[in-house]
Design a protein around this nucleic acid. Sequence first.
RNA 1: GCGGGCGUAGCCAAGUGGUUAAGGCACCGGAUUGUGAUUCCGGCAUUCGGGGGUUCAAGUCCCCUCGUCCGCCCCA
Length: 420
Amino acid sequence: MDKLQSLRGMVDLLPQSTPLWQRIEATARAHFARAAIEEIRTPVLEATELFARGIGEATDVVGKEMYTFVDRGERSCTLRPEGTASVVRAAIQHGLLSQGPQRLWYGGPMFRYERPQAGRQRQFHQIGLEMLGFADPRSDVEAIAVAWDLLADLGVQGLALELNSLGSSDDRARYREQLVAWLSERADQLDPDSQDRLQRNPLRILDSKNPDTQALLADAPTLAEALSPESRDRFARVTHGLTLLGIPFQLNPRLVRGLDYYSHTAFEITSTQLGAQATVCGGGRYDGLVEQLGGPPTAAIGWALGMERLAILLAQAGAATAAAPEVYVVSRGEQAEPLALQLARQLRQAGHAVDLDLTGAAFGKQFKRADRTGARWAVVIGDSEAEAGVVLLKDLRGASGEASQPEQRLSPEELLQRFA
RNA sequence: GCGGGCGUAGCCAAGUGGUUAAGGCACCGGAUUGUGAUUCCGGCAUUCGGGGGUUCAAGUCCCCUCGUCCGCCCCA
């Protein structure tokens, strides 16, 4: 392979698809602004320790999926595999939490060294929300509502919100013991992956895709039963709030999050249109993370949505296309071309989208290109116009269609006035 | 990290061991030396992802490798 090409799992977004991404980003910004959520931007590269401590050493993300290297200062650095740890780090570092609760959003590339698949690349993009310093169950509802309304506004069809409570860390520790004990007696009935998880990350066995394992789990102790009365009450307030807002959800007692920092409310928004990587948006509460990273005890909830997966869903509905320029400037000749250069700039300074043909090709070729861009107007300048101090303004989208639309002779000043 | 499918031009694609690798789209040039559709003419792969092997002969068969797609794992 001696042709230069992008690294595996790193994809180019070509002009054909960027309008869709821009629409998603603009819609997200509008929703965040309306919900009084401010943007935060953190570095793509962080100290490896941040993720090891924040996400959990035992997780797959930290254990085998990070892009980690030693820099020239002998520091271990990692390209961020997710956004939450960085946002929390920045909030602690700059004392944001002493200024009261923070409603923050972020967006950008994340990196995980995984095998590429549908809806999964090594560099992928997320938009995420983090609400730091909010303990009330209403904040869970509000965070979910922002995600739900954003996706609805974008026109994504066929989404389902799945909800579960992981309880407090005490609840979870207690349940974990029960589950491991129960499953250990039946380890021979588990699929190999799940046997492995029994040591490493037993809760993940709950969302195994193996049908035999799922059948076995039907009789296993459930997380819901292990929740303390306080945790149950809290979760009930969340579900009541969602009902109040008319946001439909399904309780999924098997829903477990992969990163260690989650507690209480966990949720995913999924689509059946995405193949194996069905989760468009996932999140939950992480009340212990801020403290774990050296900050004050701080309740928090957040989510992240996968841009590539969202783009897949929206592309199915119909692609957005780039806007056509308003004006296409056709010019040819030594006198005409400098004049065209100036006029194009002046029209742009007046706020118009202008495409300037720089080929110097025959007028016929330039008109053909002008037509194809979809521009409404052509400004035509040849040397005879340049000498006479005029330009031709031609309507390319007149009622009668194609060629031989009427042209107007205007002075450059008149043209600019016309487009003022 | 594991399993499977697929790699012929920017894109789609014919080719099923035998001389110079169809066709379409797109793009470029010309017919039209200053006006957009259509049409017509011409151009656009010394080579089939890369490397090695089998053979008189390989895009076609074999091996390795890279990439890609789908699934597992994992996750947004």
